[in-house]
Design a protein around this nucleic acid. Sequence first.
DNA 1: TTGTGGCACTCGTCCGGAAGGAGCGCTGAC
DNA 2: GTCAGCGCTCCTTCCGGACGAGTGCCACAA
Lengths: 353, 353
Amino acid sequence: MNDSSIQLDARERTLLRTLIESYISDGQPVGSRNLARASGLKVSAATVRNVMADLEDRGLIQAPHTSAGRVPTTAGYRLFVDSLLEVRKPSREQIDAIESRFDPGASTQDLLDSASSVLSQVTRMAGMVRLPRHRNVALSQIEFLRLGEGRVLAILVIDGREVQNRVLELERDFSQDDLQRMANYLNAHLAGKSLHTVRAELLREMREVRDDLDAQMLAAIDLGEQALGDEDPDDVVVAGQTQLLGYEELSDMERLRQLLEAFNEKREILGILDQCIRGDRVQIFIGRESGLDWFENCSVVTAPYSVEGEVVGVLGVIGPTRMSYDRVVPIVDVTARLLGSALNVRGESPDSQ
Amino acid sequence: MNDSSIQLDARERTLLRTLIESYISDGQPVGSRNLARASGLKVSAATVRNVMADLEDRGLIQAPHTSAGRVPTTAGYRLFVDSLLEVRKPSREQIDAIESRFDPGASTQDLLDSASSVLSQVTRMAGMVRLPRHRNVALSQIEFLRLGEGRVLAILVIDGREVQNRVLELERDFSQDDLQRMANYLNAHLAGKSLHTVRAELLREMREVRDDLDAQMLAAIDLGEQALGDEDPDDVVVAGQTQLLGYEELSDMERLRQLLEAFNEKREILGILDQCIRGDRVQIFIGRESGLDWFENCSVVTAPYSVEGEVVGVLGVIGPTRMSYDRVVPIVDVTARLLGSALNVRGESPDSQ
DNA sequence: TTGTGGCACTCGTCCGGAAGGAGCGCTGAC
DNA sequence: GTCAGCGCTCCTTCCGGACGAGTGCCACAA
């Protein structure tokens, strides 16, 4: 995909990497003299200038104006993170600090909140966590409560700890006794099975036993099917959006506004995260690669997190394209692992009834 | 409280009002020449200068620097909104536009969301709505569900439509049958009564009948008391925070950040709104009157809203101190009325069972 | 072919000073 | 009390020069 990367020789790669590292740390266009010195290569500034001209021709760097130094382009950053980046291993203390933020006893929601806020605080950018897909969590119990004419509250207890309730609008009315019987039936058949299984089973039964069962049971299945409706709400937890106000390169008010708006709407953020959920390691989105205007000068670093070996969600940070990838990437990586572990530990000890 | 206001004669008042109006619309310090013209008074600029010097002595206006025009001080704004402000009546179309945003069939939550977003859109500032206190809403039903050892889910249905659930951690364990009986007992005694009454009644019974009742009933009362615990969560709905990014006078990044942070935390916002809940009309907070640093250059316009004649919450907008109060005040006012009406209509037709 | 030193040139930034303009305070006259 | 006028202050804008960073190109050496 990057044919230009293939053509780079060792010296060009060193210079590009040094240039980008220098730009990331200073925010200033990098000139040939400084670059020659910083690179550690035994070449003169003039030689570096020639190399820089080549790199500019290939679209990896550019000069903001004549006789300024060079800054990386989006393509340059892309190449950098794909094949030039050497990440710093996070220190033991850093890992411990992050881990200590995950209280094993906390609820899923609290863990997600912790994850996004720890991401935000450690990286000083905005943190975000895609809610975990409910994979094979067990349905502990289902109950119905009659609210009024044709309106029924369905209560799902999942994994013996989390509660979801949904209001169902039905065409026909059931008495509380009817509902109780239906709940009993469903609980007897389905309790303890995974939500996924439960849904499949309900659908199967609806097809298979439609004629054999009495109306009551049929209604129960129908009701169960409705209650389990669309699995779980798409959502994302964000934290520390305001960290982004501190960055010089994000100070364009209109852009900044669109950016914060995107955090409020959450929809576009979701879109970006969902693109990252495939792939098993850290992924990086740079600048407008995602096709979103407000995303100029921003990058996203994401990593999926898993429970019991299965990827259930993705988390990451969003910040200026000029960020310390070597520091941020490993942080996002460990946070994803640690969140996965924390969720995992919890999943192993459901105090089911 | 403002002894300086008493001493202002008609001309001074006119000039102060004109000055503030001019500053609000232009954002520029106002000079004597322009002020003389804009005021409509038949006096020269020199005379106006004299008056301005007086107003400056009284702390109502100030000059950013020598030989600049004058701008209002906080005290000046205060006097302006308290006794100089002539609000524009909102047009029929504006009222209709706002009213159309309140769908009578919507849930309370949706109505609050609509209110804050309509406030934000119409005023182009940030809108906020304090959640309504649950005044005398009726408890329709209470149910308990055993989650695990000593953990019980309490489900309250209120007004036949809204559902609250809370997880109770108990010292002793109850079987689902026990819980069912306790719920039956509580429902028989309490359903249909207002939450307030219910709480009072439970407390009374706990004292009075402690010895007469069997352990089961006692436990039921105890459980009910816990389930009704601290009435409802303090919360506030905000919308359109990003509108604030557009204002020149709020462009200090550090301040802006604190401001947005306050919206995220919600605590300080709550504090401000709660201060405004007493008083039956529109209230205005200016600048640092609230004692909060980040509030410099900001003002809040609030109005309480009522259901069935009782104030249940407060809504408002937050924006730059230099805002068009004459336009904003009536908007906040009507929005509060319309929200009250919308909630009221809904309250009259609870489809109880 | 590749690397190097040197030179001319281009910009952007940083003053410093000058010009212009808005606006104030003060004073003296009506 | 009102008002015109004067002198003064201070902000803003513009302009030009000095400076520095950095480039592109060329000639020359290895």
